[in-house]
Amino acid sequence: MLDAVSAELLKFSRHRATWFLIWIYPVGFILLFAIAIAVALSGALPESPGTPSTAKWIENTAAVWYVPPHTLGRYLIAAFTAVVFAGEYGWNTWKLVVLHRRRPALIAAKYAMVLLLLYGAVLFTALLSVVLTWASDHLTGDAIPPGITPAAILHEHGMRAAVTIAPVLLTIAYTSLAAILTRSMIAAVVIAIVIGTAEQTFTAFAPLLSVYAPRLIWGLYQVLPGYHLENLGSWIVEGKAFEARFPRTGVVALGWATSAMAMAAWIGGLMLLTLGSFRRQDIN
């Protein structure tokens, strides 16, 4: 299995689109950071209100973790996953590799590679963020709040990273399935964007929509993954359930275990469908 993952890494280490979709995290961060420093040094901003709190300072360094679970980040992950899974159809290279490994192992290696590169890039960006924030405060003479310890930084970053896991895995899962079924990078990206947008839109507007079909929307809201993603995030960050108020049917506020199981079912189900579809697929 390690050989297969290493083959995937070797394969995509020279693929420009892949690197764009991975390096965009650190490069994008450095660009934004450079712009912020330039603006601060030019004096265009009003005087800083003072030293931020320790919690705020640490939270700022963890900003990159907000990207993967939100809309733009999920589109980027969808594009990356589509390239990795559907690229083999475009290059006609599945027939080159399926002789050498069992098909499920090839798909598993792709999942591992996507997660490894994605989390590697975000982790690197987070590290960069801590180092650059600290360095810029020194350079600009801003005071660094007291009480910043590696443990406190690790705790905040770990918590933010944990919030990303379910949405990232879900995006990878439905994009990989779309890629295997459509055999096309573009189709997979389009389908992933449509699904992602629909899921987030439904989650946001379900309480409003529920006035038209209260029971149906109430039921769908608790079955579809959108609420469970919000709920898991809320449990991790705030330690309590995410409350969704429905005008006619009441409040949805589920335990973390229920949401974790629901997400495991969605993600596991979609990944198993991907494996199953690929295992039975004719490669012409």
Partner: peptide
């Protein structure tokens, strides 16, 4: 060829 060599293992 290196990719194939690793895939085969």
């Amino acid at each position: 060829l290196q990719v194939l060599a690793r895939t085969h293992g």
